[in-house]
């Protein structure tokens, strides 16, 4: 059996001191695979993604999250990131006053020892390579993090960061929404460039069209804070034409 790189076990979670949102999520992504996570609005997909990344505004009440077989529940968000976890946010925030280049340098150096900071040449080569894959203009890296970015530019920035940081496990939360077809292709190219035997990904989307470009090994369907169905990529096609009620009826929720 293939090694599992991301495993969610019976995860229950709520907003810190608030409503419960996840009601026992089970899901695993073996090493080298790309899985899709679909589900209606408000079913808990983004919440799951943020909890995996360690968002302190949520509380895990039961269950576990494992990366490469190790529980990450006790780790801070930065520690999780340094174990190789990456989340492309559905709504990336703006941080004024820090350029993308400086931010990525800080992020890369956080993964290295003090005194072993990344060299200027090595850094720019990495950046340039990623920018080229995304067909972006180089001036973008001098702009402040997402300040004044369009929705599509923010999504591209999330993929740019993914390419530079080279995570082992990436969760992409609706990186396709708000993109035109050309941008969708570019972003997919970015993700496909990262694909390989050491890379696993969970791609959250509402649209089958993305899955034509990033072909998933497995599709999971989340409803009311639970994964109610997992199946082959054709499941996404059925969902696209028949809707979520069809699957609700099938599994009897």
């Amino acid at each position: 059996m293939a090694e599992v790189s991301l495993e969610i076990r019976n995860l229950h979670a709520r907003i810190a001191e608030g409503d419960t949102i996840l009601n026992g999520v089970d899901l695993s992504v073996p090493k080298g695979e790309v899985h899709a996570l679909m589900g209606p609005n408000g079913s808990g997909k983004s919440t799951l993604a943020k909890i995996i990344a360690g968002d302190p505004s949520y509380e895990v009440t039961a269950g576990d999250i494992l990366v490469d077989g190790q529980s990450v529940l006790e780790l801070e968000p930065d520690e999780r990131a340094r174990t190789g976890l990456y989340l492309a946010f559905q709504y990336p925030v703006e941080v004024p006053g820090v350029s993308i280049a400086n931010f990525l340098r800080l992020a890369l150096n956080a993964r290295r020892d003090e005194g072993d900071e990344i060299g200027v040449m090595e850094f720019y080569q990495k950046l340039q390579k990623a920018i080229a894959i995304l067909g972006w203009d180089e001036s973008i890296i001098e702009r402040n993090l997402h300040e004044g970015f369009s929705g599509g530019e923010k999504k591209r920035s999330e993929i740019l960061q993914l390419l530079v940081l080279e995570p082992k496990v990436a969760i992409l939360d609706e990186t396709d929404s708000g993109l035109d077809v050309d941008a969708l292709k570019t972003v997919s190219q970015g993700v496909n460039a990262a694909r390989g035997p050491e890379f696993s990904s969970l791609v959250i989307t509402h649209y089958q069209r993305l899955l034509n470009y990033i072909v998933p090994d497995v599709v999971h369907v989340m409803v009311d804070g639970r994964v109610i169905r997992s199946g082959p990529k054709e499941l996404a096609v059925d969902l696209d034409s028949k809707g979520y009620d069809w699957i609700r009826e099938q599994v009897g929720v």
Binding site: G54, D55, D78, Y86, V98, F103, A107, A110, L165
Partner: peptide, 28 residues
């Protein structure tokens, strides 16, 4: 907190994230 979480989710240690946030705040 959403900014702090975003920065830390990229691996920035808390003190570095704080520096970015303060710099960002004073940037104006």
């Amino acid at each position: 907190e959403d900014q702090r979480f975003y920065l830390m989710s990229r691996g920035l240690k808390p003190e570095v994230a704080e520096h970015v946030l303060v710099t960002g705040f004073l940037y104006e």
